[in-house]
Each structure stands twice: as structure tokens, then as C-alpha cells.
Amino acid sequence: MTGTLYGLGVGPGDPELLTLKALRLLRACPVVAYPAPDTGQSFARSIASGYLSAEQTEYPIVVPMRIERFPAQDIYDVAARDLSRVLQDGQDVAVLCEGDPFFYGSFMYLYERLAGRFPCEIVPGVSSVMAGAAALGRPLAARNDVLTVIPGPLPDSEISDRLAAADAVAIIKIGRHFKRIRTLLEREGLTGSAGYLERISLAQERILPLAEAEGSAPYFSMILVYKGAENWITNLPVESSQIAANVSERAS
């Protein structure tokens, strides 16, 4: 019998946001694969590192991080070839994926190469969009609101068209496109209803109104906009450090 390929969503960064099922399978699989940059550590691995054991074999899928689009097809071809040998030997493989495997996740490229030949199971994870709404303290959408997810690299004209047709918007993959997107939202009159979020659920998390966001934005950042019918409060929640200070003060 062959092994099973598991695509495990490990969430946006907080290790406690792994599902119980993902954790169980992660600990049970003898081989763990994950995407990794050519410089620095793998973000997906860093999320799950506390749950890995020395007995497990690790397989980093190294994809160079470049501003321009990198033709990674050859890299996934090689990874699929190597992992297929492991699966043919009867060993299960867990592939870690930031957020959710099928929501802009890298795992889908292995899935399309291996799912037709080996048993495969997808374990959904907490996506950054859902985690972002929770951190912002404002619902994403309600009733008949249309939620649209917009990748930041899209041209201005396409972003504007999608903004006009949506009630709630999540703009992801901002990074080097931040200033351009912020200017576009200002032009559309949406700055006041937009929240800026970066490194959600991590210690370096930042949440603030888009109007107060300055400078550059990291890759792991997003903008959430609401323009639907609900009269939700747009004020951002008190920062966690301030909440802790208030709790300490009350306790004393």
C-alpha cells in the first residue's frame, strides 16, 4: 500500500490556531514537507516547529523569493517526484501550508501533480482573511453582502472595478503595492472604512486605520474594507498591550 499525502493548513502564524486534526496528522506523519525561501527560515515550518519531532524526516521545498514572478513549475515537479518515491514506499507525507491549503496555498501545486496517483486528504486551516477580521474586531460580511478578495498585484483599473461591485473587500498580497493601493482607496473615498493589518496573530502584529498606516508594508499584510449595509463600528479594538495593562490595573 502507498502512503497518504496530507495537505495541512497551519493558519496565519499563531501555533495555537492549528486545528486538532492538523496537529494529530502532523505528529503522526514520518515525513514533513514545507515551502521554504532560498534565504531565511520557512514560515510554515516556524508555525509548526514546536510540534515536530527529531524522528521525522523534513523535506523543504525551496522556492526563490523574487519580486518578479518566478517560474516555480520545475521546483514543484522535482518535489512531486521526490515525494512520490516516499509515498510509494508506504510512508505518509504531511505538507505544511500557511493559512489554508486551497486558499492561495502552495500545496495545490503538489496536489495537482500527486492526487491522481496517491490517496490525498486536505485539512483546512484558518486563513489570514478570517484571522484578520477577528483581529480587527469587525465582521467581514453579513446577510447578502458580497465579499471580494483582491490580490494586490492586480492593476488599478481592475481593483477599482472589483471594489465597485463588492460590499466587503479583503486586499491581500500588498507588500510593495501598498502605497499604490492606499492612493487608489483614497481616490475611491474608502479610506475611512478600511483597516490595515500586518503579521496577523504574531507577536509583531499591527492593526490600525488605513489612514494612519505609513511607510512600507510587509508581504504578510492586508487591507479590509467594509462598504455594505450593516452599521458596524469601525473603531479599531484596544491594542492587546493596553488591554493587559488595564487588566493588571484592575487586579491591583
Rank of each mutant, 00 (worst) to 15 (best):
G189F: 10
G189K: 03
L190M: 10
L190D: 10
L190K: 09
T191H: 01
G192C: 07
G192F: 05
G192R: 09
S193A: 12
S193Q: 13
S193W: 04
A194N: 05
Y196S: 03
Y196D: 07
Y196Q: 03
L197K: 01
E198K: 00
E198R: 00
R199E: 09
I200H: 01
I200N: 01
I200P: 00
S201H: 06
L202N: 00
A203H: 06
A203L: 07
A203P: 05
Q204H: 05
Q204L: 06
E205F: 04
E205R: 04
E205D: 06
E205T: 04
R206N: 03
R206F: 01
I207F: 09
L208T: 02
L208H: 00
L210D: 06
L210R: 05
L210W: 02
L210N: 04
L210G: 05
L210F: 02
A211I: 03
A211T: 11
E212D: 15
A213N: 06
A213P: 09
E214A: 03
G215Y: 02
G215M: 02
G215Q: 01
S216Y: 00
A217I: 02
A217C: 07
A217W: 01
P218G: 02
P218W: 00
P218E: 01
S221M: 03
S221Q: 02
M222V: 07
M222I: 07
M222A: 13
I223Y: 04
I223H: 05
L224W: 05
L224R: 04
L224M: 11
V225L: 10
Y226G: 03
Y226H: 15
K227W: 08
K227S: 11
G228F: 09
A229N: 09
E230A: 14
E230C: 15
N231Q: 14
N231C: 07
W232N: 07
W232V: 08
I233L: 13
I233N: 14
T234R: 14
T234I: 12
N235S: 15
L236G: 11
P237D: 10
P237A: 07
P237W: 08
P237E: 13
V238A: 12
E239S: 11
E239D: 14
E239G: 12
S240W: 11
S240E: 11
S241E: 12
S241W: 10
Q242G: 03
I243L: 15
I243R: 14
A244I: 15
A244F: 13
A245E: 13
N246H: 11
N246W: 13
N246P: 00
N246T: 12
N246L: 14
V247F: 15
V247G: 08
V247I: 15
S248A: 15
S248H: 12
E249V: 06
E249H: 11
E249Q: 13
E249P: 00
A251F: 15
